[in-house]
Design a protein around this nucleic acid. Structure first.
Lengths: 193, 193
DNA sequence: TCAACTTCTTAACAAAAGATAATAAATCAG
DNA sequence: CTGATTTATTATCTTTTGTTAAGAAGTTGA
């Protein structure tokens, strides 16, 4: 269970046993049923979770309308990283799309480890760089590709295509920056049947 | 001159004199005339610059069409940070919008300092977190606001409004995710005169 | 199994945006 | 100063998207 999380960390940094144990002792297990909320608009984020299994969506609510902008899957972190950094009340919500098993720790624990261990300071940098890269590429795609091109690129990426099989299409629409109705029309244009 | 850069660094981290000198000895001065290129599509980014004065735009070219997605101003870093992280040929270009004075250093110098000094490792994390925050907020705005709302938010932010006085409107249009013609129409709708 | 709910598609209409081109305004360089 | 270039606006037309609503298809849970 926690090994799965330790394995994830090695994607960014090698940890000695004592370093790992310094984090491990602060970990707790959690489950969240489908449609449950990890955080809701207005709350202040204090925790980061590791997704052992399941999936979540991140969305913003504007006048009764939900805009899903991000998805989280197993073997990745899930949480309001921006909220943890700024310590401001969150403008977003994170909801389970499937039943989730989680490993939970307070963000403060992580920042404390940043001070105590160079390895975690390195991890913190690698993590932020990793998240930056994802956003930078995504932003460029949003600004340079048309909705139709974005959809084609999305289904052309094997990892993303698998997402479509697990996530309702309406959420993918808003991830791509269009309405569900519009995505349905784009699909009809592309897959004439 | 270099003091201006050192001052910038203190926004992220406090450096001792020896720490600062370890970086300072690798710094070089550069100027770039208006319309000059800091990096062009296809090149591999190896340098980061600090903008002493002037401004630049970052753009992508797609079938003869340029999409400007980011601006750089004095007292900030300018460069292809993603390219430095991935070490892959760049898909973007950075061009001076005004005559620029720069302080230049190789990205390798920075990563070497990450290893040598905890203070720079901390700086690297803070920098990545800072860049992440900017992108995260921007992505959310792109996905949740209409073009008109994005323009209103843009001119409603004093710091951004000042940008409008220095940057041709066509570039701001594409920064906001619309064509120059469309931004002109949005402005007419909003400022009826 | 079956009713309730969710999701996707389709239609019809209005609104907005893209493309192209022409003109006006502003800026720049010799 | 002035011709050349760059930039912004406006018009026209086409395409796309948003909105709303209805119906079909699929899923879920008691």
């Amino acid at each position: 269970m926690v090994d799965q999380f330790r394995q994830f960390l090695t994607r960014f940094v090698d940890l000695t046993d004592p370093e790992w144990q310094a984090l491990e002792k602060h970990l707790t297990s959690k489950t969240m049923p489908k449609k449950g909320f990890l955080i809701q608009q207005g709350q202040t984020a204090t925790e980061i979770n590791f997704l052992l299994s399941g999936s979540c969506r991140l969305f913003y609510e504007r006048d009764g309308n939900e805009k899903t902008t991000y998805f989280f899957f197993e073997n990745n972190l899930v949480g309001d990283y921006l909220g943890c950094l700024t310590n401001q009340p969150s403008t977003l919500s994170i909801q389970a799309l499937e039943d989730c098993k989680l490993i939970c720790f307070r963000y403060e624990v992580l920042t404390a480890l940043y001070q105590q261990f160079p390895a975690y300071q390195l991890f913190g940098r690698k993590l932020a760089e990793y998240l930056f890269m994802g956003l930078d590429i995504r932003l460029a795609e949003l600004l340079t590709l048309s909705p139709e091109e974005r959809y084609l690129k999305f289904i052309g990426t094997p990892a993303k295509r698998k997402i479509m099989e697990r996530i309702p299409q309406q959420y993918i629409a808003s991830y791509l920056g269009v309405t569900p109705v519009s995505l349905s029309r784009i699909r009809r244009r592309i897959h004439p049947s």
